[in-house]
Write a protein that binds this DNA or RNA. Structure first.
Length: 158
DNA sequence: GCCAACGTTGGC
DNA sequence: GCCAACGTTGGC
């Protein structure tokens, strides 16, 4: 059991969008960064916890909790010539890009804004808070996970 | 809109 | 293999 943080621009695909999906789940497609790809392909497992982060908002914020429901498999949007995330270099017999499937568990309302998170001593080492942190998929420690859930007033999942 | 902090590309 | 140029992300 491990923990992760996934970034999404709120205006692009929000936690509310995830909750509105059939089965409240979606394939996390479109990741085109090798470091993030390696985590999606090799490390992220069914049952892992996901902090759903809205980037680009005012303020940027952690807006919900999700869980992994399907581990890494080839990202179909890379094979679709009409898709915005199409990558002709990714072949179906040797895919470059991977996705996992996540399902919404609980919103964090109000969301935990970035400036507030920066005030929390226990989160000082968090990758999200590091200057210049751009990875759209990041590992989160068990202690950070626990702290974020308590800040979000989440006592029990599901 | 600005700019820092990256990741990627390609010439050499 | 180095590194400059370029493109992108994302906070502010």
């Amino acid at each position: 059991m491990a923990y992760w943080l996934f970034k999404s621009e709120e205006g692009c695909f929000s936690f509310a969008n995830l909750e509105a999906e059939p089965d409240q789940s979606t394939g996390w497609d479109g990741v085109r960064n090798f470091q993030a790809r390696n985590m999606l392909r090799d490390q992220i497992k069914v049952g892992d916890g996901v902090l759903f982060y809205h980037s680009g908002g005012n303020p940027p914020a952690i807006a919900g909790i999700a869980e992994v429901v399907e581990e890494g498999h080839p990202d179909p949007t890379a094979f679709d010539a009409k898709h915005e995330h199409y990558d002709p270099k990714s072949k179906s017999d040797e895919p470059t890009w991977y996705q996992v499937r996540i399902r919404a568990v609980k919103p964090i309302d109000p969301p935990l804004g970035l400036p507030d998170l920066r005030q929390v001593k226990e989160l000082e080492g968090m990758e999200l808070l590091r200057k210049g942190s751009r990875l759209s998929v990041q590992p989160v420690t068990a202690a950070e996970w626990k702290k974020v859930l308590s800040l979000g007033k989440i006592k029990t999942l599901r």
